[in-house]
């Protein structure tokens, strides 16, 4: 499983992000880029947290559950573990269809 070492090169224009996946959809992470996500965190912090929680280039994700109301936050499977996050921040994770 070899990922793209830098987020800049892993980008495919017009690609989707994790925040727009529906329940049951599977995908592969192609990049983490926090630009465009409103957050209280200092610059670069959200990206680092995402990587620490396993959301890094090459990881396999699947949306398992959606909370109420507004189908938000979501619970996703990341390789072997399950992670809860809000759709707003999930926008920082770019994905491509699972191979």
């Amino acid at each position: 499983m070899s990922g793209h070492p830098t987020p800049e090169t892993g980008q495919s224009p017009g690609g989707r992000h994790l925040g727009e996946l529906k329940k049951g959809e599977r995908a592969r992470v192609t990049g983490v880029d926090e630009r465009g996500v409103v957050t209280t965190l200092p610059e670069g912090e959200l990206e680092r947290r995402m990587i620490e929680m396993g959301l890094v280039e090459g990881s396999h994700v699947e949306v398992l559950h959606e909370a109420f109301p507004g189908r938000d936050p979501i619970a996703i499977r990341v390789n072997e573990h399950t992670l809860a996050l809000r759709r707003a921040e999930a926008r920082a994770v770019r994905v491509a269809p699972a191979a």
């Binding site: 957050t39 209280t40 947290r49 992670l83 809860a84």
Partner: peptide, 13 residues
């Protein structure tokens, strides 16, 4: 005031 801290929480088995 301000946005909420992100939620990034593991759901253990």
């Amino acid at each position: 005031k301000g946005a909420r801290e992100p939620l990034l929480m593991e759901l253990p088995a």
